[in-house]
Amino acid sequence: MAGEMTGGCACGRVRYTAKISDDEAYLCHCRMCQKATGSVSIAFKSVKQADVQWTHEPDWYDSSPIAMRSYCRECGTSFGFRFKEGSENMDLTVASFDDPSRFKPKHHFGAESIHRAWLNTEGLPEMRTQDYQKLVDKWVGATGKVPE
């Protein structure tokens, strides 16, 4: 399933095309990623840096002595992570792809910081966005259409 996939940020300022060789992705639970994203984990797809073409270069945050994180300064979308030196690879956030549905998690990283209560949420009540009428009304009032 090799091929190219596109992605970008919420506001559309930063866009990319990446060559993808497989469907494997992973969840990172390390404290650096938790703090950088404000989430309990983040889904990453590892790719070769040379296989990512940016139509508009993202902003880069010098997040530690060994790594940098890409993001959009306008909307805050997180694009991923790369080492400052010594690696031809980088990680792109799965959710920043236009269609992230093809990726499947193959392992967990940063297991020492896993919040286990958030791993298996099967059985919890589920609510679709369009079923929350207050939100739908606000969205329609602001944009004239229902949210995606």
Results as ranks from 00 to 15, higher is better:
Tyr71Thr: 05
Arg82Phe: 09
Thr121Tyr: 02
Val146Met: 05
Gly80Cys: 05
Ala95Met: 07
Met32Asn: 13
Thr55Gln: 14
Lys19Gly: 12
Arg102Ala: 03
Lys84Val: 10
Arg31Asp: 09
Lys35Ser: 14
His56Asp: 07
Cys30Gln: 02
Asp62Tyr: 08
His29Pro: 01
Ala111Gln: 12
His115Tyr: 06
Ala2Leu: 11
Gly76Leu: 01
Glu57His: 04
Arg31His: 12
Ser63Phe: 00
Ala10Val: 13
Thr121Val: 14
Thr121Pro: 06
Lys45Tyr: 04
Pro125Val: 09
Tyr16Thr: 02
Lys84Cys: 12
Asp51Thr: 03
Ile114Pro: 03
Lys106Trp: 02
Val40Glu: 01
His56Tyr: 05
Gly110Gln: 09
Met5Tyr: 09
Gln53Gly: 09
Met127Ile: 12
Met5Gly: 09
Gly7Ile: 00
Gln49Cys: 05
Gln133Leu: 08
Asp51Ala: 09
Glu4His: 12
Met32Ser: 09
Lys35Gln: 15
Tyr71Phe: 15
Val47Cys: 11
Met127Arg: 13
Met32Ala: 11
Lys45Ala: 10
Met127Trp: 12
Pro65Met: 05
Ser64Glu: 02
Ser101Phe: 00
Val136His: 04
Glu112Cys: 09
Arg73Gln: 07
Trp139Lys: 05
Cys30Leu: 02
Leu124Val: 07
Thr37Glu: 09
Ala18Asp: 11
Phe109Leu: 15
Ala25Gly: 04
Ser64Tyr: 10
Val14Gly: 00
Leu135Ser: 02
Phe103Met: 14
Ile42Val: 15
Gln130Ser: 08
Ser70Cys: 08
Ile114Thr: 14
Ser39Gly: 15
Met68Leu: 07
Gly86Ala: 01
Asn120His: 12
Phe44Ile: 01
Gly141Phe: 07
Pro147Met: 10
Glu85Asp: 11
Lys104Gln: 13
Met1Val: 12
Phe103Glu: 09
Asp131Lys: 03
Asn89Lys: 14
Asp99Gly: 04
Ser64Val: 06
Ser39Gln: 13
Ala36Trp: 02
Asp22Gln: 12
Gly110Asp: 07
Arg13Asp: 07
Met127Ser: 14
Ala36Glu: 08
Gln34Asp: 11
Ser63Ile: 03
Asp62Arg: 07
Ala95Val: 10
Thr77Leu: 00
Phe83Arg: 03
Lys48Thr: 07
Pro147Cys: 07
Ser78Cys: 04
Trp54Gln: 13
Phe109Tyr: 08
Gly3Met: 06
Ser41Ala: 15
Asp59Val: 01
Lys104Ser: 11
Ser87Gln: 05
Thr143His: 11
Ser96Phe: 04
Ala25Phe: 00
Trp139Thr: 11
Lys48Gln: 13
Glu112Ile: 10
Met68Trp: 01
His107Arg: 15
Tyr132Cys: 10
His56Gly: 08
Met32Arg: 08
